[in-house]
């Protein structure tokens, strides 16, 4: 993986898109990332998304719909299990999934030095 920015290479063009409502972001020491670094970051993000969306699918479409009859054979506190996943359980898991994503993607952001925190100091490697 290429970690160094290559400003000084004559064949490289640095792109910044413009917009009327660009988000605020931190001042990083290194304002230019290589294409490879972006690719690696994106691979890590997509991997995380796949895991979380598998859980998302399993609790709602899996437990709540496809396997509902099978799970309904089990009953806890008068709640048939499949029915509980469809009307309560899946919603709780959805909430947890979003906060887990926020935490884990934040960690990946810092690892790759692309987080939007106000200071660059909480990036890995610069931590005390």
């Amino acid at each position: 993986m290429q970690n160094k920015p290559d400003h000084d290479n004559g064949n490289v063009e640095v792109y910044h898109h413009r917009g009327d409502n660009l988000p605020a972001h931190g001042s990083h020491d290194e304002e230019v990332l290589s294409e490879d670094r972006v690719k690696a970051y994106w691979r890590a993000n997509v991997k995380l998304l796949l895991v979380l969306l598998t859980i998302w699918f399993t609790v709602s479409y899996g437990f709540g719909i496809l396997l509902v009859d099978w799970l309904n054979q089990v009953s806890l506190f008068g709640f048939k299990l499949g029915f509980w996943w469809a009307q309560q359980g899946s919603i709780y898991v959805f909430v947890i999934l979003i906060f887990v994503y926020v935490a884990l993607i934040g960690r990946i952001d810092r690892k790759f030095g692309v987080d939007d925190s106000d200071t660059g100091s909480d990036r890995e490697g610069e931590r005390p």
Binding site: P5, D6, H7, N9, N11, V12, E13, V14, Y15, H16, H17, L22, P23, H25, G26, H28, E30, E31, V32, L33, S34, E35, V38, Y41, W42, N45, D109, G113, V114, D115, D116
Partner: peptide
């Protein structure tokens, strides 16, 4: 190419530029 660059830029939350080789 400039649209692909836009996509790369949108994927990165820090707003750092992305260097593209030609």
């Amino acid at each position: 190419d400039y649209v692909k660059a836009l996509v790369d830029d949108v994927r990165i939350p820090s707003g750092a530029g992305v260097a593209h080789r030609h």
